[in-house]
Design a protein around this nucleic acid. Structure first.
Lengths: 249, 249
DNA sequence: TCAAAAGTGTTCGGCTTACACCCATGT
DNA sequence: ACATGGGTGTAAGCCGAACACTTTTGA
């Protein structure tokens, strides 16, 4: 026999929350943080992720994602932007919320609930000063070993999400320089999605989407026939979208 | 000229977090909550969402989603389960995390960061006792007006997510009774996705997926030729998945 | 002249779409 | 007998997959 719906009595609820905000935190000992999965790419190579050396017991010696507590006066969605700016000197980074991780014991120092964001950058856009070389590192996705905290899970879910989004929206361009060749773009998809693509089919597809702009320039300093350079045209993409064309790869 | 990567000095970070967990909360005045977007369906009707009357200024008189603070001793992903059980007497509900909403001013009483989950139930599985009829209500998606807090945004994003997931995974069955007709299933898809489907194509598609089990029974108490009843076969679905067959509609 | 990658069309099969009539049941 | 939805097959078009050779450049 099904139970019936139990409403919290109207009088009880607001007071509860009121109490929370002045006193519940002491009881909860809970902090909110953000973890950033910064994916990076250099043409022709592997997909990488930016990691920091962790020096918190019991995770000393492991690598971790870049995280920070949320400031009392900032919107959740603003925190990653601040972190990119403060910690890596980056602005206008593409990022997207993935998921919030809140197991009780995910953090050794107490309850820290963390919202994961992934972001896409070119590796060259984050120069790592030499005195930090042993504490900050790009690691290939396939070579990431055990990470601190629950960061392996966070990385996994972020990668899954990145792959899904990459198939249904033109976000890959954020991993490439402004001007790129079709071969570079194809390799990007192959590397990130871990699939092989047919050159002719890939090019036909992109031509049909009509979201690239022929820069009119060619590759330089290359030991073979230089390729045309293209640029992603966001305005044209929006046009195509309105006409009902769906990006899909 | 690009800035170089700025690491937080190794000595500073752990202490910071340590301090947080004992004292930062008083400073932050931040609470974590969960909001549940409970989608419900009754064969042949519209997709609905369960709403509660809100009695918190300045939202008095508006409807809101079902939410609650997270308990200090429970995993984030466990909170919805507890809420379904405590507040609606429901167990074994399908639910999925959607997104976390954390704008500073989203809650009138202070900073409340809330993680949204959507869930799928049959409307008949939540009997609403008569003395609560004016405080708890199923509303058709299309008739939901202004909600309290940022709950319109939460509902929108949850619905988007539900629609996306419904197209790529066999989750619709959670909205239907154990045994259902193909017409009911088709109507479900049409109603939730707001599209029209061709009867013959729909049936062929489902036959090819081979994830339904013919119960061998027929509809009863119906004023026309009774339809066969089917049941979703989860094991068979997993088999098909392993063979590489992708659910898609 | 050689090496290396750029660039380019066509065919085939499978999936999606569109479409109309007879059947079984209750009243 | 009639009204109501249940149940079924076929043809056309589109899209994705497979596949090989010529061209251009630098060394």
């Amino acid at each position: 026999m099904p139970l019936s719906f139990k409403n919290i009595p109207p009088t009880k609820r607001p007071e509860n929350i009121n109490i929370s905000l002045s006193s519940i935190n002491e009881e909860y000992k809970c902090a909110m943080s953000v973890d950033c999965v910064i994916f990076g790419y250099d043409a022709e190579e592997e997909l990488k992720v930016l990691l920091l050396a962790c020096n918190m017991t019991p995770y000393d010696g492991l690598w971790s994602l870049l995280g920070d507590l949320i400031q009392p006066n900032e919107d959740l969605d603003h925190a990653p932007k601040r972190i990119f700016k403060e910690r890596a000197g980056l602005e206008n980074v593409y990022y997207e919320q993935v998921k919030t991780f809140g197991d009780i014991s995910r953090h050794p120092l107490g309850r820290v609930i963390s919202t994961a964001y992934y972001s896409l950058v070119q590796i060259s856009s984050i120069p790592i000063s030499s005195h930090l070389k042993d504490r900050v590192r790009w690691k290939s996705i396939s070579e990431v070993g055990q990470l601190a905290f629950d960061h392996n899970q966070i990385l996994d879910e972020s990668l899954q999400r990145l792959r899904q989004r990459l198939r249904e929206a033109p976000i890959g361009f954020d991993l490439l320089p402004d001007k790129f060749t079709l071969a570079q773009l194809q390799t990007l998809y192959e590397v990130v999605l871990d699939i092989e693509l047919d050159k002719r089919n890939f090019r036909r597809k992109l031509k049909s989407l009509d979201i690239l702009e022929d820069v009119g320039e060619y590759q330089k300093e290359v030991h073979h026939r230089p390729a045309r350079l293209f640029r992603f045209n966001k305005a044209r993409y929006r046009e195509q979208r309105q006409r009902g064309l769906k990006f899909e790869l």
